[in-house]
Every structure is written in structure tokens, then in C-alpha cells.
């Protein structure tokens, strides 16, 4: 007899609880993925320099005669200098990123867009990195039409025309891909490279060849350095708690 009176409220209670717990299980996952929280007390830095030794290929004059409006944008000859080497062999435009070691950690994409500009019938920057889901913004600052074409293989390949004065293009890449070659379908001398990574640990070397990956959780990592002409190199790094790793990565010419 008493069992019956207990059973009914118990059922109701159980249904309510299960409904509630279902909800609490689903909602946070759907709304905000479990992004990895970097602990500033234990995170460290992977820094380094990319250098080049040997005979570098000579910069080549870019022939813009196919579009005189492009040529007119330049007072002097434009040089294409893919292996840009500074003092003491510092190598610019190398893309450095953590290739392995972050396991399944998920990182929130930054809200700032990465911008590429088509200016002087040239892409700037030549090499850029962005995170999966981060906004990729394409400007046309030129008085001519461009047609940007990222030749993605893992992500979706696309191309889109931009007339002079057209508003910026806003795109995203949904999967990691290092690297995506970018060309302009109209001006065959224009090229750029995009590295898409699913975490924030990537950098492009400037003229000093230096790079810094900040706020890296301690761990064992494989970092990769990519260069459009010189290829790829890997390096194993162990980062201790709140540590700093310094490395020199060297490419050799012929």
C-alpha cells in the first residue's frame, strides 16, 4: 500500500531529474565547446630563429606588362624575392607552427580577422597564418579587378572576383591545412600562402627570422617550419612548466 504512494512521486521525481540532467549535459556542449583554458602560471614560450645558409636564389623582376594598370602603380621595378634573407642569414616568410603535441585540446578562434590586401597587384602579406574558424578578410586596394583563388586541398577551394572599390570578402576555413597556395586568377605573378591551424601556436618570421609562440602549455612538441621554396623542417621541443625554449632552425641553399 505505502509502496504505491511512494512510487508515483518517485517516478515524477526521477523523470524531472533525468530531464534536468539531460539538459545540463547538452547545453554547455552546444553553446560553448569545451575550449582549453591556458594556465598563465604554467604556460611558457617557444622562441627561435630561422636562418638560411648558402647561395640564395636571386630575386626576379616581376613583369606586370600583361596589365599595364598594375605596372603603372609602381615607380620602380618590382622584385619577387621568395627567399628573403637578412643580415646573418635571417630568413623571412617562414611559417612556424606546432604540428604535434597539443593532443585533443580545442582552442577558441580569435575574434580579430586576418587580413590580406591586394595592393600594387601584389598580395600582402605574402605568408599568413590563421586559426580554424577565424575570419579571413580580403581587401582590394587596387584600381583593377582581382580574383583571389586559394588552391585549398583539404578545405573547400574557391575563387572570387573583386572589382575596384568592392567591399572586402569575408571567409573562414573549417579545417587545418598547412599550407594553402593562393593565387590571383587574373595576375599570374601574384601569390601568397595561408597556413590554417586549429590552435593559436603559429607565427610567420619577419626580416629578423625570429619567431615566438607564446602561452604554450608545458609539454613535448613537434614544431614544423615551412618555407615556400626551401620546404619543411621539424624540430622536437620539450617545454617545462613556465619555461622558455630557444631553437635555431637552419635551411641550406645549394
Amino acid at each position: 500500500m505505502t509502496h504505491r504512494w511512494v512510487a508515483l512521486p518517485l517516478c515524477v521525481f526521477l523523470i524531472l531529474v533525468s530531464a534536468c540532467s539531460d539538459k545540463s549535459n547538452i547545453e554547455p556542449d552546444a553553446d560553448e565547446p569545451a575550449y582549453f583554458k591556458i594556465d598563465p602560471n604554467t604556460a611558457g614560450m617557444i622562441a627561435g630563429n630561422v636562418i638560411f645558409k648558402g647561395k640564395r636564389p636571386a630575386p626576379k623582376i616581376v613583369d606586370m606588362d600583361q596589365d599595364p594598370q598594375c605596372a603603372e602603380l609602381h615607380q620602380q621595378s618590382v622584385y619577387d624575392d621568395p627567399v628573403s634573407v637578412g643580415s646573418e642569414g635571417s630568413l623571412a616568410n617562414a611559417f612556424v607552427w606546432i604540428k604535434q603535441g597539443l593532443d585533443d585540446k580545442k582552442f577558441e578562434p580569435p575574434t580579430d580577422p586576418m587580413v590580406i590586401d591586394q595592393k600594387g597587384c601584389w598580395f600582402g602579406p605574402r605568408v599568413l597564418g590563421l586559426q580554424v574558424g577565424q575570419t579571413f578578410k580580403v581587401l582590394n586596394s587596387d584600381p583593377v579587378t582581382h580574383n583571389i583563388h586559394p588552391l585549398a586541398e583539404i578545405n573547400r577551394e574557391w575563387n572570387q572576383s573583386q572589382s575596384p572599390g568592392a567591399e572586402p570578402l569575408i571567409r573562414k576555413f573549417s579545417r587545418p591545412e598547412v599550407m594553402i597556395r593562393v593565387k590571383c586568377n587574373i595576375h599570374n605573378w601574384m601569390h601568397a600562402w595561408i597556413g590554417v591551424v586549429d590552435h593559436p601556436y603559429f607565427a610567420v618570421t619577419g626580416p629578423d627570422g625570429a619567431f615566438q609562440l607564446n602561452n604554450v602549455p608545458p609539454g613535448k612538441y613537434t614544431i614544423e617550419v615551412w618555407h615556400e621554396v626551401l620546404g619543411r623542417k621539424e624540430e622536437q621541443i620539450t617545454l617545462v612548466r613556465a619555461g622558455r625554449s630557444e631553437t635555431i632552425i637552419e635551411f641550406k641553399g645549394e
Binding site: 606588362d65 600583361q66 596589365d67 599595364p68 583593377v144 579587378t145 582581382h146 580574383n147 583563388h149 577551394e157 574557391w158 575563387n159 572570387q160 572576383s161 572589382s163 575596384p164 590571383c184 586568377n185 587574373i186 599570374n188
Partner: peptide, 28 residues
Amino acid sequence: PEVIAFYMGGGNSNPQLDVEIRPLMLSA
């Protein structure tokens, strides 16, 4: 000239893009 440049670029990619639309190599 903008129209010609648009065609030179091969239009804008999309699933139904016409097969005849592809980048054109035209000199000045």
C-alpha cells in the same frame, strides 16, 4: 574592362558555375 577582368578571373566559384567559365589568359 571590369567585365573582361571578371571573365578573365573565371567568375566566382559556386556549385552551379557554368563549365565554360574558367580563367582566361588575355594579354593587354
